[in-house]
């Protein structure tokens, strides 16, 4: 298998990694870097659980070759909480009981971040459409939608983050 050295910025840190040409971004994150917060429920682009942000855009890491995103800025769930505390989206998910088994949660939260970065004040319908590609088998989505709307509100008050 062809291998190349490639540079990435992952969660604001610079990385220089030896990457096999057929390795997906999800594999790179989970196996090479042990960033297992990113989950893979299907591995084939159907469920959204592996969503990360690449240059701010939501991307399915299971269906993206690592080498194809060299030099890019990659954000995973591990980047959201800081020393100061949780990201408002994370806090809202906890407060609203939007997490049951938690397996869809990282992808759902990253998708929410992309959604709110783009549209800070979404309607309920826009939220439902925005997370339309992120499957959750536990919650029935009610509390996730509540959490996202509450996060939008608290981020609006804080002036965004």
């Amino acid at each position: 298998m062809k291998k190349e050295i490639a540079k990435f910025t992952i969660n604001d840190r610079p990385y220089e990694l030896l990457v096999e040409s057929n390795v997906t971004l999800a594999e790179l994150l989970r196996e090479q870097l042990d960033l297992t917060g990113t989950k893979c429920a299907c591995g084939v682009g159907e469920c959204g659980s592996c969503t990360v942000l690449i240059d701010g855009k939501p991307t399915l890491s299971c269906s993206t070759l690592a080498i194809a995103v060299r030099e890019k800025d990659i954000l995973t769930i591990e980047s959201l909480a800081t020393r100061e505390g949780l990201h408002p989206i994370q806090q809202a998910f906890i407060d609203h009981g939007a997490i049951q088994c938690g397996f869809c949660t990282p992808g759902m939260i990253m998708m929410t971040k992309a959604l709110l970065d783009e549209n800070p004040d979404p309607t309920e319908q826009e939220v439902k459409e925005g997370i339309g590609g992120n499957l959750c088998r536990c919650t029935g989505y009610v509390k996730i939608v509540d959490g996202i709307l509450a996060a939008a509100e608290s981020m609006g008050k804080e002036g965004g983050r």
């Binding site: 989950k39 906890i94 997490i99 088994c101 938690g102």
Partner: peptide, 19 residues
Amino acid sequence: VPRWAAFEKATGAARFTVD
């Protein structure tokens, strides 16, 4: 009250068997 392990699950720190 907050659910068990909600913090770990929200931050990606929770380890599942696949991890």
